[in-house]
């Protein structure tokens, strides 16, 4: 199995090759190109959104509640007269932040644990393995609910809970990826040239297991957003009036039957679009890093 870093003699050539491959994947798969554009749009909204929106996302207006979409309010107004469009756009940053932090924490801790387990085997492997099995034995959403309920519903706790339920994916993946390379030729070579274990693990083996993890990260990002939304629906999510997609859908869901569909639909679409983007991007990344497709 060839990998990103192991195959290029010159790093520059490697980068160039990677870019060429990126371009190939993009043109070859319109869905990935589409997802990549959506991704840029979402990141853009997260970065500059708060300065672009027409209304203060928190300002209530008792005079114009539950207005359907119009030129003044593109996505209508909610039960307190707040502009749904502004809230949807401003929410991007928080949702992205939750997802990115949760996945980052899960990735760092999970892959470290997994890499150590995979490299040393034995008790380290058994203990982390059993711990991860224990986490996996819970229905994951329920575990997240339990953690947030126990620790209190703050943004940090939502992030921690989401990180914990994502841990096993990275730990298992890192363990497998590291274990298969533990005795690979280049590792033996590094060992013979007197490198310490941790150096080999950190600089030789681990970078090689990154590509498949990137795919996992992208898929988990979408999942993390959904998870936060689900928590909000139960009442364990972000605290209002902070705009957040999940809580907006959850609140708006109560207004569907009464015909105020725009309350749930637009944040729902934004939520779906974001999750959709990350999922497609994950698939695209898989193509990107899949050596079989690179020839």
């Amino acid at each position: 199995m060839t990998t990103l870093t192991a195959d290029g003699a010159s790093p520059l050539a490697g980068v160039r090759r990677f870019l060429r491959h990126l371009l190939y994947v993009m043109t070859d798969n319109p869905m990935t190109a589409f997802a990549f554009m959506l991704f840029l749009l979402i990141v853009g909204a997260a970065l500059v959104g708060p300065w672009l929106v027409p209304y203060d996302p928190l300002a209530t207006n008792a005079g114009s509640t539950l207005q359907p979409p119009s030129w003044q309010h593109w996505f209508g107004t909610d039960q307190l007269g707040r502009d749904v469009f502004s809230r949807v756009v401003v929410a991007t940053r928080l949702d992205l932040m939750i997802a990115v932090s949760a996945v980052a924490i899960a990735f760092v801790i999970g892959s470290t644990l997994g890499a150590i387990a995979g490299f040393y085997g034995g008790w380290a492997e058994r203990i982390t393995g059993r711990c991860m099995d224990t986490i996996m034995a819970f229905p994951l959403f329920v575990l997240a609910m339990g953690i947030v309920a126990a620790a209190g519903n703050t943004v940090e706790n939502i992030i921690y809970a989401t990180a914990i339920i994502n841990l096993p994916f990275y730990a298992r993946m890192a363990r497998t990826e590291v274990a298969v390379r533990r005795n690979a030729g280049f590792v033996q070579a590094a060992r013979l040239s007197g490198n310490a274990d941790w150096r080999i693990l950190a600089f030789q083996i681990f970078p090689n297991s990154l590509p498949p993890m990137m795919v996992q990260i992208s898929l988990n990002m979408g999942w993390a957003i959904l998870n936060a939304a689900g928590l909000s629906f139960i009442g364990l999510g972000v605290i209002p009036p902070t705009p957040e997609w999940g809580i907006m859908v959850a609140e708006g869901a109560n207004y569907i039957i009464s015909g105020h569909w725009w309350l749930a639909l637009f944040p729902g679409l934004a939520l779906m679009l974001a999750v959709f983007t990350f999922n497609l991007l994950g698939d695209g990344l898989r193509d990107l890093v899949d050596p079989q497709r690179r020839t």
Partner: peptide, 25 residues
């Protein structure tokens, strides 16, 4: 292929409580 992918990905991207309520409606 792309359509299949888009359809199933859209499915997993929808919060279930939203889908449920929409279907009921």
């Amino acid at each position: 292929d792309h359509l299949c992918r888009a359809v199933v990905t859209a499915g997993v991207s929808l919060p279930t409580f939203f889908t449920g309520l929409a279907l009921i409606y």
